[in-house]
Amino acid sequence: MSDLRDLYEEVILDHNRSPRNFQKKPQGANRHAYGFNPLCGDEFTVHLVVEDGIVKDVGFEGAGCAISTASASMMTQAIKGKTEEEVHALFRKVHDLLIHDGHGEPPDIGKLRVLAGVHAYPNRVKCATLAWHTLNAALENTQHETVTTE
């Protein structure tokens, strides 16, 4: 059981229990995307308020497992106030972290580091990336498309 704690760190369990910026569609939201993992049925909609190239506010709705919910919740905290370029850069770092091959230094991404535990569970990586792919789609404003992790 102890190695399960590497995946289900207290921070992850906490974000799963009480996700931040959840069930919220911020006023003035102007970018949206829906993401879906057909493997397990996880689905999230991400809403963004983007003004002058800055993510002013963010919220998400939907349902998923602890990993996908916590990842989405932490993501919303991490991107608020960032420029679109910064968010893109963060997306790439998280992506690298999750599929990190163990060579070289893992990317420096602060609190989001807890997601690194997912790396040891290859069939859960898509859970952790779902919200991020959805975020990417929202930024590109492909709101009418469904993002899937398959």
């Binding site: 289900y8 397990c40 497992c65 602890a66 569970y121």
Partner: peptide, 9 residues
């Protein structure tokens, strides 16, 4: 309180 995917893991 526990998603099936987490139970599976």
């Amino acid at each position: 309180g526990v998603h099936p995917h987490d139970i599976g893991t």
